[in-house]
Design a protein around this nucleic acid. Structure first.
Lengths: 203, 203
DNA sequence: CAGAGACTAGACAGATCTGTCTGGTAACGT
DNA sequence: ACGTTACCAGACAGATCTGTCTAGTCTCTG
């Protein structure tokens, strides 16, 4: 099969599959995974049921694809932020803070409803479920990213501080959904200022 | 109706209602709320369906009761911890750290599956739903508790630091479920040491 | 003893969910 | 022109979910 055909209506990138994934992502994120039925996704995506089950043999496959796309999306955002930071001549510490500023902005957007991975994990408690593996992959990526930036920023204990920054990320996602996200802007910056220079020696 | 009768099999404290609440709490927490059907609660509690719907007119009422009990339970635990701390002559700061140590222990228990309130909120995104109100009440209590202890511990900015400690709590709950809870013991203590003496002036 | 109230057992209705299957349309490549 | 393939429309099966209802038991109270 020619690549030209694939680009137009190939199995891997057909417009139906895209529509399914986009509507599923919006619905899963906004209303939860278990509450959204396949019928609703089909109706809102304007897709036949057979087409849906042709692209995704089971609902779980769609859920997994949804998380994989979220993962890729976040990596893309971070990559662009880092490039912008590098081309501006920023330090690694400034690049790291830019990532958190972006997360705070995102948490303040009206559609924000928490971290898709944390929310999915709450709905899939079984550690052996593929959803949990997707969540773990995303977390491993973020941990490595933090460690790398902290090392470049000459943090005295990059792995340790990275673990702390993951905690900051998680609490930011939870708090922006459950508390006042505007207040968390100040709180998070304060927290980062207390965290980013290493453990205290004067306490 | 005499209180004696109530104690034995009264409407407010019948053993059937207790069994329903206990099994529902265990199942909701371990496997999620939407995934647990009323039939399963009824079967595992050994209760007739009519009895269930007599005590809880709808499943949502049971969910709400489940969260209210969790709230009461946590308040009880904290109250006992504070009393123990006071009778040991501990400072407010030590009492606060004891609460976090207890949360870390809890997060390291094998049955730990995250914070029941955060998990419930993930399953009930609608801000107008009673579940969200129960979550907000619990968070308001915890914020007030932190502020009180920090004020007693002479923290220079108790409200601000309290907001940060809520973030620490949330990330602890998420992380103990999704990451290695044993590692979070060290990480959290490190984080608290960086946080608890106020914002840095040397950075 | 008689009545009230909590409880059990389980059928039942109606909706919804996942997944399958049939049948038809339209665009493409050979 | 023909076959392939992606797609649409919708019926259907089987399970499961919430909630209602009937009928009967048991225990305590008056």
């Amino acid at each position: 099969m020619s690549t030209e055909t694939q680009a137009r209506r190939g199995t891997a990138a057909g417009p139906a599959r895209r529509r399914i994934l986009d509507t599923a992502a919006a619905l899963f994120y906004a209303e939860g995974i278990h509450t959204i039925g396949v019928d609703r996704i089909i109706a809102e995506a304007g897709v036949a049921k057979a087409t849906f089950y042709n692209h995704f043999p089971a609902k779980d496959e769609l859920v997994h694809a949804y998380l994989c796309e979220q993962y890729a999306f976040q990596r893309g955002v971070v990559d662009r932020l880092r490039e912008a930071s590098v081309s501006s001549g920023n330090t690694a510490r400034e690049a790291l803070l830019a990532i958190y500023d972006h997360m705070i902005d995102y948490g303040n957007s009206p559609a924000f409803r928490g971290c898709p991975f944390i929310n999915a994990a709450a709905e899939y408690p079984d550690p052996a479920h593929p959803v949990r593996a997707a969540v773990a992959a995303h977390r491993a990526w973020f941990r490595a990213l933090m460690t790398e930036l902290l090392t470049a920023a000459d943090d005295p204990t990059p792995e340790r501080t990275a673990d702390i920054l993951i905690m900051v990320r998680d609490s930011l996602a939870v708090g922006c959904d459950l508390d006042d996200p505007a207040a968390l802007r100040t709180t998070t910056r304060d927290l980062l200022s207390r965290v980013l220079a290493g453990p205290r020696t004067d306490a």
